[in-house]
Design a binder for these strands. Structure first.
Length: 398
DNA sequence: TCTGGGGTCCTAGGACCC
DNA sequence: TCTGGGGTCCTAGGACCC
């Protein structure tokens, strides 16, 4: 093991403020300064809020809230469904700017990233100056504001960036991480959601300070190895992820919540086929394949079941995936119960360049796969030409 | 006011093997 | 014939994140 280098670690966590809503307000001046809700429009039965502008948040609207409720809280709000391609574009613009500040950028999602700024003070000046310059550059080049957290661990930087939104900058000095953590309410503990918070409260631990007072062994005895250790380290600001770690168990999934529960086989099969095409298209674009197919059913009462199966051979084409999904579905489905959501996933995807064992039927399967690839390629070139499985156009499908 | 869609990671239990 | 102990792989479900 190598000793810790003398250079103190410096991490930035950069978070775009109310990202989707901000992009909409940028593109539509008439939305600016108004309560804007992205995620659905009133009347979308089961839609939820994806992002609310700060003006809308004043009414109590927040992410994950049903649109129906948002419309009640904020009846004069502007509601839009959103344009994810556009958000992706803007995200890319911002991420490219980050590259100018650090060779090590870890993008965490469409609207946030960690930057390793360790040892760059000679180039950029102090962390604070650097952050201010970065914020200014992002605003000038993209019209968006970001909030930045700076600390010696990614974990603390992440929490810090969330404290002074929007357009915030929070610096936790090296050595002050623990003190910083202790000053926070329990809700700010990243990775500790409502369930764990409830368990903590049930155990008499209501604050980060109180957790800090317990030994690791005690926390493990109450919460188990994983959660116990996590809590012990998190309240000390110790918890850190490994930079540049291999992405394992990558999966590609698609799911859909239906406006009305499905009960008949025809609509169910159509929905399954649609999900299959979606997943397969994306696997094709990413040049990956998978041997493990998973299926998820959420019933009307929100109980959720899943099945998965790993086969000797990777999924080869849409029919293949569809057949596997139907088999899994038959294994789990309780006929008569209404289905509110269906989802499928291909797990443990691997790059198509790694050699694979071929099945006895490989040549026929490969032929089908080739045809599909050609179709996908054509759809990419001519989005107006939607070549889809004939059954998607059969009655009932839109 | 019933609760989206895309992910990742962890855990517990069963099967199977030596 | 009453039953060890470890390792590994797989699955189902749950927690959490944005």
């Amino acid at each position: 093991m190598e000793e810790d280098s003398a250079i103190p670690k410096v991490y930035f966590h950069v978070d775009l403020d109310a990202f989707f809503a901000s992009v909409e307000q940028l593109d539509h001046p008439e939305y600016r300064g108004k309560p804007l809700i992205v995620g659905g429009i009133p009347g979308d039965r089961r839609a939820v809020v994806s992002t609310a502008s700060y003006e809308a948040r004043k009414f109590g609207v927040h992410s994950a809230m049903p649109i129906v409720k948002a419309a009640q809280l904020c009846p004069h709000g502007i509601f839009v469904r959103g344009n994810y391609q556009r958000y992706q574009e803007k995200s890319l613009e911002v991420m490219e700017i980050f590259q100018n500040y650090s060779p090590e950028v870890i993008q965490m999602s469409i609207d946030e990233a960690f930057l390793d700024l360790t040892g760059t003070s000679g180039i950029f000046g102090s962390a604070e100056e650097t952050a201010k310059r970065l914020k200014k550059e992002v605003l000038e080049k993209t019209g968006l504001t970001v909030s930045v957290g700076i600390a010696s661990t990614m974990y603390v930087a992440k929490i810090a960036s969330g404290l002074k939104k929007p357009d915030g900058l929070t610096i936790v000095q090296d050595g002050k991480e623990e003190e910083f953590m202790m000053s926070l309410p329990l809700e700010k503990l990243w990775g500790c959601g409502t369930k764990t918070q409830e368990r903590l409260k049930a155990a008499g631990l209501k604050t980060i300070k109180e957790i800090h007072g317990k030994s690791e062994n005690l926390l493990i005895s109450i919460f188990g190895k994983g959660t116990g250790s996590f809590l012990y380290n998190a309240v000390r600001g110790n918890r850190d992820m490994i930079f540049g770690g291999e992405a394992k168990n990558h999966s590609i999934s698609s799911e859909r919540t239906f406006d009305f529960d499905l009960t008949d086989r025809t609509s169910i099969d159509t929905a399954l086929m649609e999900l299959c095409m979606n997943v397969l298209y994306r696997m094709h674009k990413e040049h990956v394949r998978s041997k493990t197919v998973a299926l998820k059913i959420r019933y009307e009462d929100f109980t959720t079941v899943s099945v998965q199966q790993t086969s000797e051979f990777p999924v080869s084409n849409a029919d293949d995936l569809y057949e596997r999904c139907k088999t899994l579905f038959a294994k789990k489905w309780t006929a008569g119960r209404g289905i509110r959501l269906l989802g499928i996933a291909c797990q443990n995807v691997e790059d198509k360049s790694v050699p694979v064992q071929r099945s006895l039927f490989a040549s026929a399967d490969e032929k089908k796969a080739k045809v599909e690839e050609a179709i996908f390629a054509m759809e990419d070139k001519h989005p107006e030409l939607k070549i889809r499985k004939a059954r998607l156009y059969s009655k009932g499908a839109k």
